[in-house]
Design a protein around this nucleic acid. Structure first.
Lengths: 159, 159
DNA sequence: ACGGCATTGACAGCACACTGTCAAGTTGAA
DNA sequence: TTCAACTTGACAGTGTGCTGTCAATGCCGT
């Protein structure tokens, strides 16, 4: 086990630095895996995630709402949504409470794509998690969530 | 605690899906934090990471070597390296063993930038890790590394 | 020595997330 | 009611990573 990364790190700081570097690697590998997974359905990881957020919400949401929900910038989601709408997977419904902020609605094709993706994602996630104890995954999850909370507090800039 | 994400998930699969979604969020927040951290030195996260890989290697490396070391595509690192060279932080040294694959050398300015970044990163990482037990961080790290290993095996395509 | 194969750098193009800015719409307090 | 502040969508531009392709180089078996 490598101990120090830069001189001056506490033991926790060194471990954290290692963890962050590993997280970057994981992100890249997850993107690649997501691309393989979504390819056959004609989606991409980002479009699938947005489609999923719309499909799984009980009420119609606006672009800005989905963005906050996913922790992304409004503009990033907007472009993906426009792509999905152009592909006929989402449509815009008028919002009685706001003329500009239209509501997102999933089309039949969108629903079918989402369900196809679900049928692919479930065995994939199960297989990936096989061999790791639930306890370990949940412990790692709470570390990640704790970090997210801390970073969000010290970040908050917002546009 | 939310249990299922999609029907059909095992307990592990559901936890894994949550973990993956949280990892995406973490990645975005880390990028933002990295941008704030590197901004004052005139760097970006990616340039700092590449500079760091060059600075910390005992022997001169080629672009392709650094890319493999970081788990990135050769071309991604190449562009960052070109930027760093244009900024005068890195230079190319002839490689006696290969005419095209030049060796990367860090300049004085590059070294100063790297050390300035170290002085910023160390307290930042220590602060971020404060309040989390080393044991937890290392456990989370091993989960991430295990996932990376699995994803890399099932991925290997390589260009 | 030769020739196939892997590695490498270079260039082009795509996907995705970010920031900054502006105008349209909404909300709430003076 | 009126006006300032916030929210939202739209557009432009940047940084980072990816893939695909090509030519140059090095390596190795025949």
């Amino acid at each position: 086990m490598r101990t120090g990364f830069y001189k001056g790190h506490t033991e926790e700081g060194a471990a954290m630095t290692q963890f962050i570097l590993a997280s970057f690697r994981l992100h890249g590998l997850l993107l690649a895996a997501g691309a393989r997974l979504t390819h056959s359905v004609g989606l991409t990881s980002a479009r699938w995630q947005v489609l999923s957020a719309v499909a799984r919400s009980s009420e119609p949401r606006t672009v800005a709402w989905v963005a906050r929900d996913m922790g992304l910038a409004r503009q990033s989601v907007q472009r993906v949504v426009d792509d999905l709408a152009a592909a006929g997977l989402l449509s815009f419904d008028p919002n009685p409470r706001h003329k500009r902020a239209t509501l997102l609605a999933i089309s039949d094709r969108g629903h079918r794509a989402f369900e196809a993706m679900t049928r692919l994602q479930v065995p994939w996630a199960n297989g990936l998690a096989e061999g790791t104890k639930v306890r370990e995954i949940e412990s790692a999850l709470s570390v990640v969530e704790g970090l997210c909370r801390q970073l969000q507090e010290n970040a908050p800039s917002e546009e």
